[in-house]
């Protein structure tokens, strides 16, 4: 019997597979398809202080091996999430959930995190300082080490829950941002968010997305994500949740070898609603094939020697 357990900041997960924020809503749609308790955890939809309807349509475009989205943090707002979504999550998911918190100001991050701190169902707060699809906020906090550190410190002051900072790949040196977050007291790092990208409609000769640009996700970005997880692993001592284009048990293991303690599955859930379940089912077989007895032993394994 192989051991798929991993531990994130004292939180033991039965396996490292976590559906990523923005691809799993608050679990409703997927709870009709399979038992969510098979998951290590899941990271719910990026939540802001106020309800948001997001950007104008079209918000989705396709590309070779991936997709672009410019949703722009559509969500019902933190109060609605606590009043209506958390009670639903309590019914369908009996493990600590990851709360993804987004914002447009330091005050907003602090406001939402102090509220979510009191929610017993939440095991980890994932602070999204990396959304590429909103203006005057989101990603701008994650592109400068100083502001990344400042947000981390501010959030850490209002919660006792583990805080994972979710980073953008749209920077020159992601390791320096991760290091700044660690210095600010972050308990872990989540990476990567989507890569800023665009498509142009050939007939209209205009950007395909109404927002002009969007975030690239899917298999196409896996090697980029892998490289960044590898770099950040060398730079920090805190655990990493690795994500970006993972779509198979092999990808999970590769990401863990690069340095991830756990992984998030994103766009794969959208093209195949059973993707996370199937990866979890496949994981023990892939481990056996590769001679892995315990997943926690391979974390950062590619850095040895």
């Amino acid at each position: 019997m192989v051991n798929t357990e991993v531990t994130l900041s004292g939180l033991m997960l039965s396996n490292p597979v976590i559906p990523a924020s923005g691809t799993f809503g608050y679990g409703r749609e997927f709870s009709e398809l399979y038992d969510l308790d098979i998951l290590g955890s899941f990271s719910f939809k990026g939540t802001t202080k106020e309800p948001r309807t997001g950007n104008q349509a079209p918000r989705i475009a396709e590309t070779e091996g991936g997709m672009l989205n410019a949703v722009g943090l559509q969500n019902p707002g933190i109060h609605e999430v606590i009043d209506r979504e958390i009670p639903f999550i309590r019914e369908v998911f009996h493990k600590p959930v990851i709360a993804n918190i987004s914002g447009f100001s330091e005050e907003e991050y602090v406001y939402c995190c102090s509220l979510i701190d009191k929610v017993p169902e939440v095991g980890i707060i994932e602070v999204n300082i990396s959304c590429p699809n909103v203006h005057n906020g989101g990603m701008s906090f994650g592109t400068d080490p100083k502001s990344a550190k400042r947000v981390t410190e501010a959030v850490k002051r209002v919660t006792t829950k583990p805080v994972y900072m979710k980073l953008t790949p749209n920077v020159t040196d992601i390791a320096s941002i991760a290091k700044a977050c660690e210095e600010g007291g972050a308990d872990g790092i989540s990476l990567i968010n989507t890569l800023l990208a665009m498509r142009i409609d050939l007939k209209k000769r205009k950007p395909l997305l109404a927002n002009r640009t969007g975030g690239l996700s899917g298999g196409a970005i896996f090697p980029v994500a892998l490289r960044m997880v590898y770099d950040v692993y060398e730079a920090v001592k805190i655990p990493i949740i690795g994500m970006g284009g993972i779509s198979s048990a092999e990808d999970v293991i590769e990401m863990m070898l690069a340095g991830a303690t756990a992984v998030e599955i994103g766009a794969a859930n959208l093209v195949d609603p059973y993707a996370s379940r199937d990866i979890i089912r496949q994981l023990p077989f892939t481990m056996k094939k590769l001679g892995i007895d315990s997943l926690s032993e391979i974390i950062g394994g590619a850095h040895n020697g």
């Binding site: 691809t23 918000r59 859930n269």
Partner: peptide, 10 residues
């Protein structure tokens, strides 16, 4: 996605 998860088609 086509099944309500991604909020792409609001």
């Amino acid at each position: 996605c086509g099944f309500g998860a991604c909020m792409g088609c609001t």
